[in-house]
Structure formats: C-alpha cells, structure tokens
Design a protein around this nucleic acid. Sequence first.
DNA 1: GGTCACTGTCTGACTAGTTAGTCAGATCCG
DNA 2: CGGATCTGACTAACTAGTCAGACAGTGACC
Lengths: 217, 217
Amino acid sequence: MTEPSVREAILTATYEALCEHGYTDLTAQAIADRTDKSKSHIFYHYDSVEDLVVDFIDFLLERFDEHAEEMRSRPPAERLAAFVDWFLYGPDDEEQVAFHTALLELRAQAPYNDRYREQLRKSDDYLRKTLEEILRAGQESGDFQDHDETKTAALLIAAFDGARVRQLTLARDEYLTEVRDATTDEILDGLLADGVAFPDEPRSAGTSIGTDPTCEE
Amino acid sequence: MTEPSVREAILTATYEALCEHGYTDLTAQAIADRTDKSKSHIFYHYDSVEDLVVDFIDFLLERFDEHAEEMRSRPPAERLAAFVDWFLYGPDDEEQVAFHTALLELRAQAPYNDRYREQLRKSDDYLRKTLEEILRAGQESGDFQDHDETKTAALLIAAFDGARVRQLTLARDEYLTEVRDATTDEILDGLLADGVAFPDEPRSAGTSIGTDPTCEE
DNA sequence: GGTCACTGTCTGACTAGTTAGTCAGATCCG
DNA sequence: CGGATCTGACTAACTAGTCAGACAGTGACC
C-alpha cells in the first residue's frame, strides 16, 4: 500500500458497501463497484477481504480519534452529550443506522475471528478510555457528581450497546425512546452536579466517513 | 410437519450446529450431520433454511416459556436472580456462550430479514413482559423498592444485552466482571428493599436445549 | 397368508448460482 | 526498458434447493 489515497478510496468504498449491503453480503465486487477500479485491484492491495476489513477497523479508529481530539477543549457536559450522541443517534439518521447495523454484524463475527476480535478490542479500549477521561474531567471541573468513572463508563457503554442492539434488531422507535429516556434520566442526569444541564439536542454531525457521506439505496 | 419428534430432532440438531458453527456458517448439511437423516430430509420438512430458522426461534420461545412458568411460584428476588443469570451467565458455561454468540449473529441479521425481525420482536416482547412482571411482583411483595418497572425493565435488558455483546466480542473476563458488578451493584441492588438480598450464586441450570446438552467441538 | 396399490417419508445425485482469489498480460510512468 | 499498477477471464470451492426414484408401512381384496 504505497499511496494513502488508494487506501482511502478502497476503505471509503468499503464503508459505502457496508452501509448498503451489510457485512454478511459485503463482497469484493461490491467494494470495487464503489470505486473506479476493478475487483482485482483490491486483491492487488490486500491479500484477502479479511485483511481489508482489519485495516478498515483501523481506519475507523483513526477517524474517531480525530473527532475526539477536536472535542477535547469543550466543556465536559457537551463532550459527554456528543459521546452519547455518537452511540445513540436518532433512527432518522439512516446512514448511521445502516453503518452501525453492519458494525454489529462485524462484532457478531468477532468470536469466530481472532483478528477482528483483536481490532475491536483495541477500538473499544480506546472508546472506553475516552469516556472515562470525559467523566474524570467532569468530576474535576465540578460539572459531574463524584463517582467511579471506570464503573460508570463500563455501565454506560454496555447500556448504549444494548440499546443499539435492540434498536437495530427491532427497529422499534418507542422502545428505543424508552431506553434512551431510562439511560438519560436515570444514569446521565444522575451524573450531573446540581444546576448543570446537558446542551439541548446536540445531534452532532461529523462522524460519517468519506467524501460523499450519503448512503442511498 | 406431522410428527413433533421429527421437528424436535431437526431443531435440536439446529441448536447443536449453531453452537458449533455459528449462524453464519450454519448450513443445511451441518444440521443434517447432527441428525441420523440426510440433508434432503430437512428440505422435505422445511421449504428453506430461513423457514427452519424462523421455526427454531419459536421453538426457543416455547422452551423459555416453560422455564419461566416453572419459576413463577418462587420469591421475586430469586426470580430476578434467575432471570439475570439467564442473560449474564458466566464465561465458563461454554455451551451458553457459544449459543448466545450464534443468537447475536442471528440478531445482527434481523435488520435485513423481516421474518427474523418479527420473530425476535415477539421473543423480546415476551422476555420484557416477563421481567416487568417479576419487578411488579417484587414491588407488591415489598421485596423491591418502588420504581417504574417498564423503564427499569428496558434499562436492564439493554444493559444485559450490552454486557453480552462485549462479553462475546471481546471475550475479556475482567471487563465483563466490571459490567456485571456495575449492573448488579448499581441497578439490581438498588432495586432491593432494605434487608433483602439476592440468593448466593444461583447459576441456574435448565436453560439448555436438547437431549444431549453438551456442545463439544 | 399373499400380493398389490397407495401414500408419506426419505435419499443420492444433480443443478445453478455465487464468490474469493489467481494469473497472464495490458498499460502507465519515469 | 523496467517496475509498479491494474484488469478480464478464469478456476475452485461451496451450498441451497430440486428431483426421480427407493423404501416402508398400511390397508384392501382375493
């Protein structure tokens, strides 16, 4: 892989193909179709589709890192809200939903694939550390109640994951709303010190990938 | 499908094949191999593998229902503990882990498959109602604090799902322990009225399926 | 009791479709 | 020219589902 732009083109196409077809139906051909190159081109740059997917997860992590870095200077409640938003986007954001659906498929493959598992572990560690750091910053600044940020981060990420699983599998809006309410009301609001509030409806953008961020059928 | 024992043989074989190969690599042949019949036999009784899987989910629900019914007369804390246990089994229970891993794969396919989605929704509704009923019973008996059982049920199931996703994808015992602790300590124990405790290590059996409940490689 | 016809169950061999990955050679660029 | 990049055509492997026919049980009629 000499040219970074070649890598980016292939991985962006991978992202788009994942949104459209999901992981299970992700084929080398589908990726190539979203590129101006042929299928063989992909196998010239990657030894296998598995290799490509492993690199794709790295690519995602690089993107998340950039995003997290940008938020670093913001106040803790805003950072937390942005983080929550990254996990529990609304069902109206079709691209996000499609992409996270595909990611869940990938996650579901991890138990059978050492390399995926390793990559996801790396990503999740990073995510969790980011959240812990936000929680710690909030406690130091007095915006959040004192608590054990390790435990809270673990519980939050678990609850978010769970909500996402249900949202994706059931596509049942009322239920997601319940979970979101329950999570927000009972956990998140409980974190805030008196008089501190979440910013209204942050609905952050900037988490999508690629030059053309739409994901039409 | 005339003989119920034929259905049971095929669906038990399906369970075993799911444990061994996972959903993605579940083939008609793999199911037949766990039977004393041929692959064609399966297509004689089911029009397609999808049909079979749909029926398999019904089969699971029937089993869960029997189990839940048996617990009905027990005290609420014990029922809750058994329920939690059903979701957050220990990583030592290999069969359970293997099976839930496969179920997660199935769940991850639901967004792409109307029939799976419908079946899972049905199961999840039933699970949630069962949990709500346990929570309600506990409040009435005074074993649990007063709370909104709908919200709590939603949050609990979400947190459990999330913990399971992480457990399965990361196979990282310390982290699962954290989540389990966080969930148990902060949510479950918070539910209990003063002086009530969970029974020690319930680790219930009886949730597995089939005549030979082992799932060796 | 024998045998014949009928029906439901079951099978081995087959087809058709799909896809990862290969490879010989084309093309581009310095 | 020579190396890197890229491609179309191909192969090999796999699997859902089909189908013609084997087989077993059952009952009916002689």
